[in-house]
């Protein structure tokens, strides 16, 4: 990892902790920031989703603390701290206002950000965010074991369909051991269990896109958000909670259309009309 001003990747120093980021299409006028989920990393967007969005936008991906290639941190996994981190990152990159998307727990971070800093979030996209009060995400923390991990990785994480080798298993095991037993993550996530009911989700001012898998066990959470968040629309895609991995092209397409908005669409139609008239 190198310093912030490298071409495509950087490690941004925040409070003496290094944050791994990846940037695409730096010169573009508007920026999209993508937040990954808990126990995952920025690779969920890196290969197929970010390159599509980067056709029109500056795209920023980052690894949360203790995830991917970012430095470890013992505390601060609650939504307030996570949005502090995101705000600090935006400040460091001099991003005043961005289009924001988050997947799973990252979706909760995105919503919290939109509520805390409405002027810094232009539009909001939430992919497969679970209701923390009835989420299986939280219960897995309590029954964690190495045997459980094998099953969990094979079934629930974005490494689905990849055979898990010994080195990978050990690496994942170390990450879970660290997060579960040496950080405040359990308590911090547990304390967010009333997020859907306690927070003023009905005050989210931004235009909001909710993307959920048709067969996802988080779909009821999506419907709940759709009924609560005032300017939201809900789009369903074939797949389960692993939607960004299962349907990256469709997910990226929906995000791009949403962030570009109708103004861009009209401009594109106009251009095509002019071209047709010239022929």
């Amino acid at each position: 990892m190198t310093s912030l001003n490298t071409l495509n990747h950087a490690s941004h120093q925040s409070k003496n902790k290094s944050v791994h980021i990846q940037e695409y299409n730096k010169g573009a006028k508007e920026t999209i920031v993508l937040i990954h989920g808990m126990f995952s990393n920025l690779s969920v967007y890196y290969f197929n989703i970010a390159p599509v969005l980067a056709q029109s936008f500056h795209v920023v991906l980052y690894d949360m603390k203790s995830h991917g290639m970012s430095d470890r941190c013992e505390y601060g996994y609650d939504l307030l701290s996570m949005t502090d981190d995101l705000r600090d990152l935006m400040d460091a990159l001099r991003l005043k206002s961005v289009y924001l998307a988050g997947y799973s727990y990252g979706g909760l971070i995105a919503m919290k950000m939109a509520m805390r800093y409405p002027s810094r979030v232009k539009k909001l996209a939430v992919i497969e965010a679970p209701d923390p009060s009835d989420s299986e995400t939280l219960s897995i923390i309590d029954i964690y074991s190495k045997e459980f991990l094998v099953d969990y990785i094979n079934n629930y994480t974005d490494t689905t369909r990849m055979r898990v080798g010994k080195r990978q298993l050990d690496k994942n095991h170390r990450m879970y051991e660290y997060l579960f037993y040496q950080t405040s993550i359990k308590e911090d996530m547990h304390n967010e269990r009333f997020f859907f009911s306690a927070e003023a989700l009905d005050s989210i001012p931004q235009e909001t896109l909710l993307i959920y898998g048709k067969s996802s066990n988080c779909l009821p959470s999506g419907r709940k958000l759709y009924h609560t968040v005032p300017r939201s629309k809900l789009i369903l895609i074939e797949g389960d909670h692993n939607l960004p991995i299962q349907q990256p092209a469709e997910t990226a397409g929906k995000l791009k259309d949403f962030f570009e908005g109708w103004q861009v669409k009209i401009k594109q139609i106009n251009n095509r009309l002019w071209q047709a008239l010239r022929l």
Partner: peptide
Amino acid sequence: DSIEIVSFSEKVKS
């Protein structure tokens, strides 16, 4: 894993 392939890709790109 995928984050290692990200790291590898960055090395190729740079």
